[in-house]
């Protein structure tokens, strides 16, 4: 798949949200949400935009799906310009956003799909066939004529996906498709996404879960503060930490001050602190872990350290290094 043609091409894509107009009070500031982003997605690929909250993932996806006009830069999807050819492009793409909203909850699942099929002028016979088929794929055949307000969280998400498929899009944008879903339903959703990909749909998805990107994506871009920090296959991302090792410290009084101190130590490229029940776990990405242990131990002496050990770097560490590291 590595030499497939590019169906999404973003070049220097930038979005500045203008300062909000307010009648009273502070008018708000301009916000640079996406800063000069360049990447390609190839036909048939699952491409991921991975990054923390506020990184600019949604903004990027909206520009590519014709809902937002870029401030500068250029993007084409299926060879069509996302601004100039928006009208033509819309019938060939679709967007599904995670979360509860975005369905008519007073209508049944089937009525929702009918409504959106009509928006795409799907021919009547085809419409009936397609909706039956979609309901089957997402496992909502039984619940098709039940109102959406009675659906569970997972059923709504599956209906969302079905809605995103009513026009048989060639390119599907999925914005945090597993947001807020429990693990079981997330797993089902990922299986469904893989199934779609096998059917030939090109998928661009955003997520802030490293493992999700790792599991699903052929390639991904790590995005933070509106910029792409790294781009490549999940495997190549792991390369970023191949020569590193990890010191993992568990203690009872680790805070942001300690995290910063640790990050400033020589040879350290990133530090993450995870808050667990009654204790914290810091992972220090460093070139030579054993050599640094005495320094770390001395530094954290008064922090009620529980354990210190050396570990192998994981993808999570790579992500943290690429997002926060130097």
């Amino acid at each position: 798949m590595s030499d497939g043609e590019a169906v999404i091409e973003a070049e220097g894509l930038t979005k500045v949200y203008p300062a909000a107009f307010r009648l009273f009070g502070d008018g708000g500031r301009e916000k640079l949400a996406v800063d000069n982003v360049t990447f390609n997605v190839r036909r048939g690929e699952i491409f991921g935009l991975l990054g923390p909250n506020g990184a600019g993932k949604t903004t990027t996806v909206k520009m590519l799906s014709t809902l937002l006009i870029p401030t500068s830069g250029k993007a084409t999807v299926l060879g069509l310009d996302v601004v100039r050819d928006a009208g033509k492009l819309r019938s060939r793409i679709n967007l599904v956003s995670g979360g509860e909203r975005g369905l008519y909850f007073r209508l049944t699942g089937r009525q929702n799909l009918e409504f959106f099929s009509d928006m795409y002028h799907v021919p009547r016979e085809e419409k009936r066939r397609r909706i039956t088929n979609l309901l089957e794929i997402v496992g909502l055949t039984e619940a098709a004529d039940v109102r959406v307000e009675e659906y569970s969280r997972g059923m709504k998400q599956r209906l969302h996906l079905a809605r995103g498929l009513v026009n048989e899009p060639e390119v599907l944008f999925l914005d945090e498709p597993t947001l807020g879903l429990d693990p079981e339903i997330s797993r089902e959703t990922r299986a469904l996404i893989r199934h779609l990909s096998e059917e030939g749909v090109t998928i661009l998805l955003t997520t802030h879960y490293m493992f999700e990107a790792d599991e699903l994506c052929d390639r991904l871009a790590i995005i933070s503060e509106g910029r792409i920090k790294a781009l490549g296959s999940p495997y190549s991302m792991k390369e970023a930490v191949r020569n590193d090792s990890i010191i993992e410290v568990e203690a009872r009084e680790l805070g942001e001050a300690q995290r910063r101190e640790l990050a400033d130590l020589p040879g350290v490229s990133a530090v993450s602190v995870e808050h667990l029940e009654g204790r914290q776990r810091a992972r220090i990405v460093v070139a030579n872990a054993p050599g640094l242990i005495p320094t770390v131990a001395a530094m954290l002496e008064s922090r009620r350290v529980i354990s210190i050990r050396v570990d192998q770097p994981t993808l999570e560490d790579a992500y943290i290094k690429l997002v926060n590291g130097r």
Partner: peptide, 17 residues
């Protein structure tokens, strides 16, 4: 309801809806 974008992303004009 969060459906405004779902309509906007389709080719149907909002004014028709």
């Amino acid at each position: 309801n969060g459906t405004l974008e779902a309509i906007m992303v389709t080719p149907a004009p909002l004014s028709s809806v």
